[in-house]
């Protein structure tokens, strides 16, 4: 069965790019547009990896990471945060919240796949 990945981003462009890249590599991809919606998806579906943006309305990425790590079915699911180049402090706060690693935006498809491979090989 293909690995299932949830991508969380309020930008449709970003979601499209992530989804396209991952589907092309044989992953099954779910989407959510903010942290709250992501929690909704996670409550009903087991995924193998979560990729989340930081800056989102309703619930930001760092809070989402904290929520997921706090307990439940996905407490030990790998989580990658999407950050911009200038986001060193965001990287740190995401990491402190329990994120597994990060991907720097903008990204090349190969880079995304290589990072995903490091935490959740296909």
């Amino acid at each position: 069965m293909p690995r299932k990945i949830l991508t969380v981003d309020d930008s449709r462009t970003m979601r499209d790019m992530v989804t396209y890249t991952l589907k092309g590599a044989g992953f099954d991809v779910l989407e959510a547009e903010d942290g709250v919606k992501a929690l909704g998806v996670l409550a009903s579906t087991r995924v193998d990896l979560i990729i989340t943006d930081i800056n989102m309305p309703n619930m930001d990425g760092v809070t989402l990471v904290k929520r997921v790590r706090a307990g439940g079915a996905h407490a030990s699911t790998p989580i990658l945060i999407l950050t911009t180049e200038s986001g060193d402090d965001r990287k740190a706060s995401g990491k402190a919240a329990g994120a597994t690693g990060w991907i720097v935006k903008p990204f090349a498809p190969e880079k995304l796949l290589s990072v995903v491979n490091k935490v959740c090989p296909a």
Binding site: S44, G72, A73
Partner: peptide, 15 residues
Amino acid sequence: MAEPLDLPSIGPDAA
């Protein structure tokens, strides 16, 4: 502690 909920997907891709 919360058990994994094994429910049908209602994710946006599961129309």
